[in-house]
Amino acid sequence: MNDRGAMTATSREIVERLLRAGRDLDVDTFVDLMAPDGYIEWPYRPPGVPGRLRGRAEIRRHLTAVAKGFIRFDEYRDQVIHETTDAEVIIVEYEARGVVVATGAPFHQTVIAAIRVQNGQILSYRDYINPLPLIEARAAPAQATEH
């Protein structure tokens, strides 16, 4: 794709690339899709997960740590992408499926995210995850080592 083609990507296409990079733990692609001052928010999160990451450097640090292996995602099921009346705003829904690396236990999480794309980059990514599976996955290795 030439530079002109890259500039004409729709908000939906940018979000599809972001989701693919997130699933594949492709930190470089994910960060490159973020605006320099873009942010990721988790309004509902387990203890220890930051509420907001702002800027590419902060997002890269966090995603690099995550990519080292707490959870490995295998697929996003039942993915639905909703385009809104605001061309910048995309709502996504999906079921994240994978494995808790430390235990090999299956991991399933429901996600709904509101994403704002401006000038071909992600300005905001509000990730409304269900925090309960993460809380349970974090507790499982600790419980296993107590016995």
Rank of each mutant, 00 (worst) to 15 (best):
A65K: 15
A65N: 10
V66T: 10
V66A: 14
A67T: 00
A67Q: 06
K68T: 02
K68V: 00
G69I: 00
G69Y: 07
F70K: 08
F70D: 05
I71R: 04
I71M: 10
F73W: 14
F73E: 06
F73M: 12
D74C: 01
D74E: 15
D74Q: 11
E75P: 01
Y76H: 15
Y76G: 07
Y76F: 15
R77H: 13
R77Y: 02
R77T: 01
R77C: 04
R77G: 03
R77E: 12
D78V: 00
D78G: 13
V80S: 04
V80C: 05
I81G: 03
H82M: 10
H82L: 14
E83I: 00
E83Y: 06
E83W: 04
E83P: 05
E83S: 11
T84N: 11
T84K: 13
T84R: 12
T85K: 09
T85Q: 10
A87Q: 13
E88F: 01
E88V: 00
E88R: 15
E88T: 10
E88K: 13
V89H: 14
V89E: 12
V89A: 09
V89F: 06
I90Q: 05
I90V: 14
I90A: 04
I91A: 11
I91H: 14
V92K: 07
V92L: 09
V92G: 10
E93M: 06
E93D: 07
E95Y: 07
E95T: 13
A96P: 01
A96N: 07
A96I: 00
R97F: 07
G98P: 03
G98S: 08
G98M: 10
G98V: 01
G98E: 03
G98T: 01
V99N: 04
V99A: 05
V99K: 13
V99D: 06
V99P: 03
V99F: 05
V100L: 07
V100N: 06
V101R: 12
V101M: 12
A102Y: 02
A102V: 00
A102K: 07
T103A: 09
T103M: 04
G104Y: 07
G104V: 01
G104R: 07
G104I: 01
A105P: 03
A105T: 03
A105D: 13
P106H: 06
P106E: 08
F107N: 03
H108V: 10
H108R: 15
